[in-house]
Design a binder for these strands. Structure first.
Length: 345
DNA sequence: AAGGACAGCAACCGCACAGTT
DNA sequence: CAACTGTGCGGTTGCTGTCCT
């Protein structure tokens, strides 16, 4: 049995809001607030709207200081890097961009950024299709991918994806015991990311990192910080976007995210389909990082840059402790490629 | 000029979760 | 502790404007 609808669907107006409705809603909320009950609000002010619709309208358009359109390059970078690190958590991404709403960012991503990135990837991919990348894929055909990801196999842009056998590994073995390698990789990653000054939402109780150590060191610390008490780690202006994204999650959420196996398909696509390069994304991670990951993914098979990047923002400690999750998940697997098969550059 | 295709965006839907009873 | 309710969120839809043929 489903839950009761939040409102009487027959008696609510749908579709675009009229200026009158906007005015009613706005003036009421400005005077009285929402009263903590969106469902009851439309009746109070005589609007034939669903409470959820009112809430959405207020949050996305009527509340003060909302910006629309005109995303700056800086904002694009933030969106992209946060998307890489946390996926489609639009509300969290929106929290990093004052005046932007999750809906706006989501729309912007879906209509522009995604296409922008994919478009570029596909062009390059087409140019390469007859080239060497496929040979390389075939050469490592018996490779070590743990990527039974249907998304990838369904991917129209990767028609000849070889069926790759899983790498055997012991479930008992602590696969993430090379802390120095992790550290190296994280530092490499952190150091490569642009250190944009993000609008920091400083919480009174947040843990402020110091300037005494490098940003990369802070990233490493942030990523390894035990998070059982749900602190919000906030970096200073030298902070890193990844670590900042990380700061939004407590341990439970991180674990949940680790279990999440469906990293955005389009990013899987970019990464997987373009084993030779993630051109156009250098702004996200720098050329060397790109090269490194490309090298890894193209030689060890099945790895993808997004999986690696994404996984890297989660505490290795947590990842390592979750062997079952690792076995199930493919992303974690990807993340370990670099460590298992260090790419000598 | 007309109409079809496409892109952008506002809004809706349904699910999950947290709080309350 | 279960049932109920409200809220928040992400995915999706559908309308509208613009571009292209």
């Amino acid at each position: 049995m489903g839950r009761a609808p939040c409102c009487d669907k027959a008696n609510v107006k749908k579709g675009p809001w009229s200026p009158e409705e906007d005015a009613k809603l706005k003036s009421y909320i400005e005077k009285n607030g929402t009263g903590g009950n969106w469902i009851a609000l439309p009746q109070k002010i005589g609007l034939k709207r669903c409470g959820k619709s009112c809430r959405l309208r207020w949050l996305n358009y009527l509340r003060p200081n909302i910006k629309h359109g005109g995303f700056s390059e800086e904002e694009e970078k933030i969106i992209c890097s946060l998307f890489i690190s946390i996926g489609s958590r639009w509300s969290i991404i929106a929290a990093q961009l004052p005046g932007r709403t999750d809906n706006d960012i989501k729309n912007y991503w879906n209509t522009r950024l995604k296409k922008k990135l994919l478009g570029k990837q596909r062009k390059e991919q087409q140019a390469r299709r007859s080239g060497s990348s496929l040979k390389q894929e075939m050469k490592r055909g018996g490779g070590n991918s743990m990527v039974p990801d249907n998304n990838i196999n369904q991917n129209p842009y990767w028609p000849e994806l070889p069926v790759l056998a899983p790498i055997p590994y012991s479930n008992q073995e602590p696969r993430f015991n090379d802390h120095a390698s992790i550290r190296k990789l994280l530092i490499k990653l952190g150091g490569r990311f642009s250190e944009v000054d993000l609008p920091i939402h400083q919480e009174p109780s947040t843990l402020q990192f110091t300037n005494d150590i490098s940003a990369t060191e802070q990233i490493y610390q942030a990523v390894n910080m035990p998070s059982t008490t749900s602190p919000i780690y906030t970096l200073n202006s030298n902070g890193n976007q990844f670590a900042q994204a990380q700061s939004y999650f407590d341990g439970a959420e991180l674990n949940a995210l680790q279990g999440q196996s469906s990293f955005p398909a389009e990013l899987e696509e970019i990464g997987y389909n373009n084993p030779q390069g993630v051109d156009g994304l250098e702004f996200l991670c720098g050329d060397d990082m790109v090269d490194n990951i490309i090298g890894t993914s193209s030689t060890s098979g099945g790895s993808n840059v997004w999986g690696e990047m994404r996984t890297l923002v989660y505490p290795p400690v947590l990842l390592a402790s979750n062997h079952e999750g690792m076995q199930q998940g493919t992303l974690q697997e990807c993340a370990f490629e670099e460590l298992r098969y260090p790419h000598a550059n």
